[in-house]
Amino acid sequence: MGVYISELDIETYRGIKKLKMENLAPINIITGDNNSGKTSVLELLQSVKNPTSFRVWRNLIRNNGMNLSRGLTYYDGFYDLFDVNEDTKKIEYAVSLNGEKHVIEMQATVLHEEILESQFNKLQGLSYVRYEDDYAENIMNVSKLQMQIKDNGQIASNSAVYEGQIRYVRNKSNEDSSREKNIIYISPTRHAEGTLYLNAVLETPDLYEQMLAILKDYDEDIMSINYDNSEENGRRRGVYKILSKSHKKALPLNVYGDGMKKAVLLMSAVIAAEDGVLLIDEFETAIHTSAMENTFRWILETCRKLNVQVFVTSHSKEAIDKLLKCSEKCLDDMALYTLYKKENMTAVRRMNGRKAIEAQDNMGLELR
């Protein structure tokens, strides 16, 4: 069974309060001013993958575990998921998924707990060495974030993180991976990390051929993309290589420019998201305007073919215009949501694809 989200009603999450997005479409474009909540909406939609799993929520932390050595901790990351202006730490939203409504609540309480210095060091990823048998350990008073998740009012899972913690050990008894939905999130810089979904592409010959045709906008001489798992130069794992008439031998994808890497990432993610949901934050990042139309058309039409619901964010007027107009086949499947702050709430304006084009071209309405 596929995954389809028809409504998202956010009571509170990060800086968003009382935002209701109704009549979600197969293709949803989310725009608005900076700090209007575009990325936060995609984060919550990512949590729908398995909203009672702290492992899934951990992935919403914006450092995503990549920069913990630079002073960021899981305590900081989880704490920042909540509204910084509220003393009561609470996340609450309702989502209509495949016709079934779920009300998800996460509550957190800041506690203080005394722990041994060795335990604290372990949380920080440090080895603790006791030099003398009669050495008396220091007792430390540290902050602790005690968290609980409810699904439709029923307690589903509990977890806790401590101040300074850079290692996260989840409670496996609370995890149920069988509930996970196929929801893929692509951040604005994901292409620079080298993460791809090309296995799905290489197993789909017709879509592989189509993708190569689109990639000619980035390298007109491209011939193929293959996975090389030879242990060249002591490499322990394989790399994806591009064979092009422009070069004497196949080159690793990572030597190409950001545009090629972003296009390959997006197109491979579309195929991997079959019967699921694809979330793309700042989808136009690294894509040159000359390549946008063909790339966007392939992405939208292939999502339509593979039953993938799409949510994209953008602040670029040109990119939004090209996305709206790239495929007549998909236009009736599109909705554009503009987020804006109104008093203490996040308001939204919704237009279907045709109305959005008419409002922009004939009435001069600013869609962002």
Rank of each mutant, 00 (worst) to 15 (best):
I91A: 01
L196H: 07
V270W: 00
E175Q: 07
D228L: 09
N229T: 14
V41H: 01
A319V: 06
T189P: 05
M334P: 03
P188N: 01
E209C: 08
I149S: 02
V312P: 01
S47E: 15
A359K: 09
N226S: 14
S327C: 06
F82C: 01
L72N: 09
E301K: 05
R170V: 15
E137S: 07
L324K: 12
R58D: 13
D281Y: 09
R55W: 10
Q148L: 15
E137A: 06
L243R: 09
E209M: 02
K90Y: 12
S268G: 03
D332M: 14
A269Y: 05
K329L: 09
K101H: 13
L253W: 05
R235P: 04
Y4C: 06
D151F: 04
A192P: 09
K150F: 11
L207W: 01
R354F: 03
N28V: 09
K38A: 06
M351P: 03
K144V: 07
I225Y: 00
S314K: 01
N171V: 13
K325M: 13
L306H: 00
D281K: 05
L42E: 04
Q309C: 08
G259Q: 01
G125Y: 00
E100C: 13
V95G: 04
I10C: 00
A213F: 04
T73M: 07
I222T: 02
Y218H: 07
V48H: 08
M351I: 12
W57T: 12
L126Y: 07
G2Y: 06
R368E: 05
S246P: 03
S178P: 07
S327L: 07
E43G: 05
N226L: 10
K248R: 12
H191Q: 00
M334A: 04
K245W: 03
E114S: 13
D87F: 13
Y240V: 10
R349S: 14
Q309E: 12
D361A: 13
A136P: 11
N344W: 02
Q124I: 07
D281W: 08
L266Q: 14
G125L: 06
V201F: 01
F296G: 09
R237P: 08
N98K: 10
E114V: 08
G164Q: 10
E282S: 09
Q107N: 15
K20C: 11
S290F: 10
D228V: 06
T109S: 13
L24P: 03
G77W: 05
L331E: 05
Y240M: 11
L336H: 03
G37S: 01
S178V: 10
M292F: 01
Y240W: 10
A160M: 11
G65D: 01
D258A: 08
V103L: 11
L24F: 04
S246Q: 10
A286N: 05
S143T: 15
Y168M: 12
V161Y: 00
G276C: 03
T289S: 06
M140P: 05
F78Q: 09
P51S: 06
L81D: 02
S177L: 15
S127Y: 11
I214G: 01
Y93F: 13
D80P: 09
A335R: 09
M21L: 14
S40G: 02
E282M: 02
S327D: 01
